[in-house]
Design a protein around this nucleic acid. Structure first.
Lengths: 146, 146
DNA sequence: CTTACTTTGCTTGCCGATAAGCAGGTAACT
DNA sequence: AGTTACCTGCTTATCGGCAAGCAAAGTAAG
């Protein structure tokens, strides 16, 4: 990937992020909170450090997000018998419902716009999904290592 | 694109945006300012409405960004003889130098991480670039229309 | 085993950066 | 005069991050 492509990728990601955040309705949750809820829903009971890593957030934010989601009864802290300082978090019934609603709503915005693209573009997006996720992993490793 | 893919795309874009903004060094410019400077550099003299559209920003921000870049002598306002209310902006020599530095620096972060990915992933990213840009266009149209 | 000290995992208060957006102003056009 | 293009002051939302604090766990001396 050359400078030209790197620069374009960077630009378009910033732009997409702006557009998506702007069209973020929600359940009273910020984009990051909704994303965290989704991870908790799918990756089952999970510790805060893992959540931090998966979302590429910082521990302070994760603590606050978990606190808020817990207050809202969307997730539940499950004490860890081995170490009472930490706790795993898992989704509640309310949380699962909220997650489904938010997920559907948010994906709709992307899906509907994507449907207006050419077949080729849609396929390119689908094929790039794992690569984008891998790239995010790499960028995160780079930051942590550095 | 189904709900699953839409949701994943949305999530990964947010994550990439966080990682990239966090590793944003700079010339005293915010990510958005740097991006605007880049657009001005490549799309030559340009009016503020076009800049607003290209970046998917809101007019208030564009006004402020242009003001800052102008103060820093990185761009220059060129009066429009036809309509003195508006003005086109164009890059200055200083601006071009700054843009080249920032562009190289920023792209490096992406490129270096991308190089650690598989060949397939790199190719998928390159092929998805136009599709991502088209998607951003669609999302923007959707917002403006709505 | 008990007490004292250190480390670890998380929480919280505070502040800064970035960006959106409204309201109101000025100047230039029609 | 009315509209339009832009600028600016103020507010808000989201997120990052340091530093202090707290409770549990680990370690070691008595």
């Amino acid at each position: 990937m050359d400078t030209e492509a790197g620069s374009r990728l960077r630009g378009v990601i910033a732009r997409l992020s702006r557009q998506l955040n702007a069209s973020a309705a929600g359940e009273g949750l910020t984009p990051t909170e909704a994303s965290a809820l989704s991870v908790i829903a799918f990756r089952g009971p999970i510790g805060l450090p893992e959540l931090t890593a998966l979302e590429g957030l910082n521990p302070t934010m994760v603590s606050r997000i978990v606190g808020k989601l817990d207050d809202a009864r969307l997730i539940r802290r499950v004490p860890n018998a081995d170490d009472l300082r930490s706790a795993n978090v898992e989704i509640t019934a309310d949380g699962r419902e909220a997650n489904d609603r938010i997920r559907t709503e948010r994906a709709k915005v992307v899906s509907e716009s994507a449907l207006l693209l050419s077949e080729d573009s849609q396929e390119a997006l689908a094929r790039a999904l794992p690569a984008l996720e891998a790239l995010a992993d790499q960028l995160q490793l780079r930051r942590v290592g550095h």
